[in-house]
Design a protein around this nucleic acid. Structure first.
Length: 270
DNA sequence: AGGGTGACCTGTCGGC
DNA sequence: TGCCGACAGGTCACCC
């Protein structure tokens, strides 16, 4: 579910509540994608120092070590002092004083991992191969064009792979390609430099706008405080198969690429 | 090395 | 109503 905007909105909502707080209890429910890597009891007493984001991971820095959170496809973090009773899909419960943080994840593709430091092999295995942050200064048009030139496959899976640029998942890949007027099956290296630049700009614009809208709440996603995101009201092609393109009225098409649905306008995108 | 595929897990929805 | 397949925001290991 959560792509970069949803993870960033989650981080922003969680940070003011948990930074400076001390972990009193950590309870684990059904197993997630990977084991925690430490006994929960050993984390008791540690203090949350900062919350960062790298791609779709949330890095929770503790006064000793760090916790790496991932929301998978269906995960969300709920935070509050008065949350409803624990449900069957609340697989991690973190108590910080009266405050609770819960990882709610029906499909359990999410993860919570502990490491002593960011340079640990466990962390590097997950983060080491990631591309640049799309909203940072390191995401330049020159580097982006250079990386795309080295890809012979279709642009949409290349965009989602995460080794060129992070955070663009299935919704935002379709949306950014629509806004840049690029057909999702176009070979990456064959896109003109001008259109690569347009895609670069679209990635920044769409992700920035999606964060401002609070992310996309399709099924499970909610902010840490339970609020919904509204970017799904602004999508132009995603899940709009057969509906008229907002620009030219041509019916939006759905195709499958690398086993994921792709939505595009056959007239506006070439 | 890039790119495709299956796997992980649970829930929902549409068709018969 | 019940069953069955398709599909859902991610990403890893594995194959060529």
């Amino acid at each position: 579910m959560p792509e970069l905007p949803e993870v960033e909105v989650t981080r922003q909502g969680l940070a003011p509540a948990v930074v400076g707080q001390r972990i009193d209890v950590l309870r684990l429910g059904k197993p997630l994608r990977w084991p925690l890597g430490v006994l929960p009891d050993e984390l008791v007493g540690r203090r949350v120092v900062a919350l960062r984001r790298r791609g779709k991971y949330i890095l929770m820095d503790l006064d000793r070590g760090l916790l790496l959170w991932h929301l998978g496809m269906s995960g969300r973090l709920d935070v509050g002092v008065d949350l409803p009773p624990v449900g069957r899909h609340d697989h991690v419960i973190l108590c910080l004083g009266r405050l609770q943080v819960r990882l709610h994840d029906p499909r359990r593709f999410g993860a919570l991992i502990y490491a002593q430091q960011e340079s640990d092999p466990v962390v590097q295995k997950l983060l080491g191969h990631l591309g640049v942050e799309p909203l940072g200064d390191a995401f330049t048009t020159d580097d982006f064009a250079h990386a795309l030139k080295a890809r012979r496959g279709p642009i949409k899976p290349a965009l989602m792979a995460g080794d060129i640029v992070v955070g663009v998942g299935n919704i935002y890949a379709s949306e950014t390609l629509f806004r840049a007027g690029i057909h999702p099956a176009r070979r990456a290296h064959a896109i003109s430099r001008a259109r690569m630049d347009a895609l670069h700009a679209a990635i920044r614009a769409v992700l920035t706008r999606a964060i401002a809208a609070g992310g996309s709440s399709l099924k499970d996603f909610r902010h840490a405080d339970g609020a919904l995101g509204y970017f799904q009201l602004e999508t132009r092609v995603y899940e709009r198969e057969g509906l008229p393109c907002f620009h030219c009225q041509t019916p939006i098409r759905r195709v499958v690429q690398a086993q994921r649905s792709t939505y595009y306008c056959p007239k506006c995108q070439r």
